[in-house]
Design a protein around this nucleic acid. Structure first.
Lengths: 165, 165
DNA sequence: TTTGAAATTATCCCTCC
DNA sequence: GGAGGGATAATTTCAAA
């Protein structure tokens, strides 16, 4: 008996074949089923069922396309660390963070326990757009105590983690 | 005449159709060519040519699979900020950073201009694995002056930026 | 460049091992 | 749970506008 509405995280058991499939898919999400099957040493029909199972079990949460941001006119990336005011209301923080993560400049948001309360990874056109982003969307917020902006000189990605639920 | 060996970044011109294709592909890298064509309002054969062109021009740099790290037994994510010693030799920094970004725990590395010289996004099994990672792979390095570790409580991703060449 | 249509492949479901 | 086979549907190429 499997519950189809799983809001909580139930343990997932992956065997060697699953891990091989994931290893291939990690860096080639658009590989054909036939090629995926061959890479994992199984029949195409089996690979097909396996991949569906990985999606159903929530192991594979989606397929993404890596896009060169410069081509979109967004040649500059930055990391902005944000510290919130100690007295900020919980509900206003939640609303604020949801606004931030839906802004078009935002690639990723990390909510942290530590010095910064969260950090935002953005891609923008130029340095004035960074300042504009920070002033308009972060500093202007009453919940925000301070921000620290760092320009991204180089960036490397090994894999893509799923957004938390 | 197009140079196939483009090491430098040449300007890319995207029209409205290209942008529509990218918007769809961004969050669904495995969409079928037929569905992609319909979403962009063009013929499947055109969508096919267009997508190939986007790849050839370096706009689309790859297709990735978003994987729930918890399923892999990596239930904890952290951000580690690293400051390098002012006197560290350039070549040792380069070698070190290349080692770090190839570690299996590492999801992303950002090289920054600012307080931290770079930050590392990792996924590990538990808190002792965080400590192990920092001690073994970061603090032990002679180039490293200090590190600051923050646990990731929540994570959200809007899109995937290409790794810098 | 875009398209429609043809040739080739792949997907997907069903059945059997 | 994995593999085979076959109907369906997709991708890819190409000629033409």
């Amino acid at each position: 008996m499997v519950d189809s509405t799983k809001d909580i995280h139930e343990p997932v058991v992956l065997d060697e074949i699953d891990r091989r499939l994931l290893e291939v898919l990690k860096s080639d999400g658009r590989i054909s089923n036939a090629a995926l099957a061959e890479a994992a040493g199984i029949a195409p029909s089996t690979a097909h069922v396996r991949l569906r199972s990985l999606q159903d079990r929530g192991v594979v949460t989606g397929f993404l396309t890596s896009i060169d941001q410069r081509s979109l006119g967004l040649g500059l990336q930055a990391i902005v660390g944000v510290t919130l005011r100690p007295g900020a209301r919980q509900e206003s923080i939640v609303r604020f963070s949801e606004e931030v993560r839906n802004l078009p400049q935002v690639l990723q948001v990390f909510f942290l326990g530590g010095t910064d309360d969260f950090i935002v990874h953005i891609a923008v056109a130029d340095s004035s757009a960074i300042r504009e982003f920070v002033v308009e969307h972060l500093s202007a917020q009453p919940s925000v105590a301070s921000t620290r902006t760092s320009v991204v000189f180089d960036y490397h990605r090994n894999g893509v983690a799923a957004s938390f639920q």
